[in-house]
């Protein structure tokens, strides 16, 4: 049990998908100007990434590995992720139109989020078990959401701050992202990881 907790902690904080592995940087810069939209993007990504980790593990271990077709991983995983995103969109539209209104524009964007492809690829090549792959996906997306919301909060404050004209807008955001990444490096070694 404590192993799984440690795994969650490790994927969410120590090996944070955005600030340590540098995956999923486009939504990190693109959808982080408001906390609300950052949270929406984070939740949609959490849902898709967790499902994608599970589905990709199944396809990898039930189809690709027995047939010796591991070199088709990227192709097969992209297919699965695109289907999942479409399916999620339909499901959300049916189950909760309110949430669809909020997430609507962010849902299709997840298809091109490299974190969603990267996490299943890494866990497939490390030959992890199903539970580990699932937790890896879930923990990473939790870390993704956390960093998105943190960074959106920073940017909301930055928008009000009196920054030098040279740094106004995106440049200060990039500087800030770098500092945040340095701060997350401080988690290295947490819990003996």
């Amino acid at each position: 049990m404590s192993d799984y907790l440690l795994l969650l902690l490790s994927t969410a904080l120590v090996n944070n998908v955005i600030l340590v592995k540098f995956l999923g940087l486009c939504p990190f810069m693109g959808v982080s100007s408001k906390i609300d939209s950052a949270l929406g993007m984070g939740m949609a990504t959490t849902f898709v990434l967790t499902l994608a980790a599970a589905c990709c593990w199944l396809v990898e271990n039930l189809m690709l590995a027995p047939l010796g077709l591991q070199f088709l991983r990227i192709l097969a995983f992209i297919l699965i992720i695109a289907t999942l995103v479409q399916f999620t969109e339909m499901l959300v539209r049916k189950v909760s139109p309110g949430l669809y209104q909020v997430l609507g524009i962010y849902l299709p964007l997840i298809t091109t989020n490299c974190a969603v492809l990267g996490i299943p690829l890494v866990s497939a090549s490390s030959k992890a078990g199903f539970a580990v792959a699932l937790l890896d996906g879930f923990g990473s997306s939790l870390g993704f959401t956390l960093v998105m919301v943190l960074f959106a909060g920073l940017r909301e404050r930055l928008a009000l701050a009196d920054t030098p004209a040279l740094f106004r807008g995106s440049p200060i955001a990039f500087v800030c992202a770098g500092l945040l990444a340095v701060a997350f490096m401080g988690f290295a070694g947490l819990g003996g990881l």
Partner: peptide
């Protein structure tokens, strides 16, 4: 296998579209 996977996912999406049509 890839064709089969694509077909299966396609049918799945088609079915879901009918089932979840708003």
């Amino acid at each position: 296998p890839l064709t089969a996977l694509g077909l299966a996912l396609g049918f799945l999406l088609g079915g879901a579209e009918r089932l979840l049509r708003v």
